[in-house]
Design a protein around this nucleic acid. Structure first.
Lengths: 261, 261
DNA sequence: GGAGGATTACCATTGAGCGGGAATCCGAAG
DNA sequence: CTTCGGATTCCCGCTCAATGGTAATCCTCC
């Protein structure tokens, strides 16, 4: 920005400021914000005041500040997430009504699954997905579905890097994963028992856009001991097709391999 | 910012840029963005490129740009809306399951109701609420609930200004509205037949925070001809209490008037 | 091939942003 | 009441990042 010192753009600082807030820290004093962002004190105060002016941040009675309603509103309204969410929600409600555990919708972003919607807060089941939360691709059923339908060049580069092993069942071997991904494409769904948390297992299916590429992964998390997990697949698939259609998808293009004639 | 000409801060421009996107325009060319915002061409391109750098905006194959996933993620994760939403959603699902029409959660912001959550996309019923959408306070059941529980100084200033009459049943007279608000406080809910659209009517109840102030309004929209609309009130009230409790509310403080002994 | 628009490249100008330092405010502890 | 540590605001000169014209280039349709 004008002047340098830090050599960082205002926009970069905005990102720092907004990033300082998360689900565990939705509000804090300006001083603390300065500490968390590492910005010079004076600068922090000036920026915060500018943002308060525009209602992008808000000051609460105690003096602490938090992300402003206006910011949430502008971003939510203009973002494509809303459209995807709108299309998906009715179907997710149906799934939720039948499956009774938690239903999530995730997209691929920056080599991770980003969950953009989630229904059901059943405390009896371990489920670490959160809205606007991220999890690794190779350790979630949603992630595997998204990865399985990515361009192979992307898969290659992703599988080339070291993968964390979360539990016994987490696959980390590239060759093994490749075979697994092929299976997912073949069967049309991914079922992963306890890949991140041993107690629960996830089932995920792909959601397609008009161009027949995968837009998102719809998934449910169920207790691992539940043996009829596979019975959930048809419900999920039907819902995913509904969502896809709502997004403008018109069925597989000719030439795409099908399950059966 | 550095240099003036327009005499506008970068932050103001950011707001302009983000505001240029809405649910009907989730993506556009940079040139069009420049037109919509009224910013100089070159400036628009430069700003957009900076934002693309930070992944706050994203470029799609066609060249059009849209609000970036990162922006949505950062704002959603850090915003207090998520907490409110998380608390409310399970109860909203229950209401939705029983009432079958659309269930919404709205807060008071800038003299309007801002809807932050909505379940149910029943096309058979006219419902103009949208997530991140706004509607006037005096013409929605949610708005009236929020207004009824606002500080009287705020009510005064709000009622002092001219109010738009949307349908026959929209109340616009301050005195009449005041009486109505008193009734809402007394009964604990607002029921408005066709205040904005004649075909549907809304029922709303307040959601309280730990300090016993109203945080939000929970409401359902049902067809107007449905005469047992009142029967929906208990469900809503129970759900609202559940949400309030999830927010840390601990029941009415002593001294607060109750419906009955 | 050419007209109209979108996008990029170039560049001189300058005041908005910067941030150190000091003063002030405020609440809690002594 | 005084002290003390932290949060917040004020002040202010420096300077380069941001600005936004103009012009060149790149696309796309007719």
């Amino acid at each position: 920005m004008a002047n340098s010192a830090s050599g960082e753009s205002i926009i970069g600082r905005l990102v720092k400021i907004v990033s300082a807030f998360d689900d565990r820290h939705t509000s804090m004093s300006v001083a603390e914000l300065g500490r968390r962002t590492g910005l010079p004190v004076t600068t922090t105060y000036r920026l915060v005041n500018d943002l308060l002016q525009e209602r992008l941040l808000e000051r609460e009675p105690g003096g602490d500040i938090h992300i402003g309603t206006r910011m949430w509103e502008l971003v939510s309204r203009g973002s494509k997430m809303l459209g995807l969410r709108e299309a998906a929600l009715p179907f997710m409600e149906d799934v939720q009504a039948v499956v009774q555990h938690s239903t999530t919708l995730g997209i691929l972003d920056s080599d991770e699954v980003l969950y953009i919607e989630r229904l059901g807060s059943d405390k009896t089941i371990v489920d670490i997905t959160k809205i606007a939360g991220r999890l690794p691709l190779h350790a979630t059923s949603s992630g595997l579905v998204l990865l399985a339908h990515s361009p192979s060049s992307y898969q290659d580069s992703f599988l080339a890097r070291p993968l964390t092993k979360f539990t016994e069942t987490t696959l980390t071997d590239p060759a093994q994963l490749r075979r697994h991904l092929a299976g997912i494409r073949q069967r049309g769904f991914a079922a992963m028992p306890g890949v991140i948390v041993p107690e629960s297992s996830g089932i995920a299916v792909p959601v397609f856009g008009p161009d027949n590429t995968v837009r998102a992964a719809l998934s449910v998390v169920v207790p691992r001991n539940e043996e009829n997990a596979a019975s959930r697949v048809p419900v999920l698939m039907a819902a995913a097709r509904g969502i896809s259609r709502a997004l403008g998808w018109r069925g597989e293009l000719k030439g795409t391999l099908r399950q059966s004639h």
